[in-house]
């Protein structure tokens, strides 16, 4: 049985979680909502993060994000895919990469323009 002390990142509250791993079974305490339990279980198996960055266009850089969290181990690879883009322009809400690196997440423009 292994114990892990984690800080939940699902919202700015930042609950201190204790996750106990017993074989395949993970139990979580310290969470104030069920998002904390989901986070802790994911953190011990496959940690996920939303990536935010910016895309180069002829009209300057435009901010973007992954439409959902991607595996933490793939953050830098996702960054490389975003870095490759050279667009004419990009508008709020536009999908500029579909299913980036087969993560199931799209790269979406977030810029407020």
């Amino acid at each position: 049985m292994e114990k892990f002390n984690l800080t939940c990142i699902m919202c700015p509250l930042g609950c201190s979680l204790v996750a106990t791993k017993d074989g395949d079974k993970i139990t979580v305490t310290g969470n104030n909502c069920n998002r904390g339990e989901i986070f802790a279980k994911e953190e011990l198996t496959c940690p996920m993060r939303i990536v935010t960055s910016s895309v180069k266009t002829e009209k300057g850089v435009k901010s973007c994000k992954t439409s959902k969290p991607v595996p933490k181990a793939k953050i830098f690879d996702v960054m490389k895919e975003i870095e490759k883009l050279r667009l004419k322009d990009a508008k709020y809400g536009e999908v500029v990469i579909k299913n980036v690196l087969d993560t199931g997440a799209d790269i979406i423009i977030t810029a407020n323009e």
């Binding site: 919202c11 935010t52 901010s63 810029a111």
Partner: peptide, 17 residues
């Protein structure tokens, strides 16, 4: 441009922009 905004106001996680 990072995420983490709007969870209380819009009940949804948004980026600043």
């Amino acid at each position: 441009i990072h995420n983490g905004f709007g969870l209380h106001y819009f009940n949804e996680e948004l980026t600043g922009p």
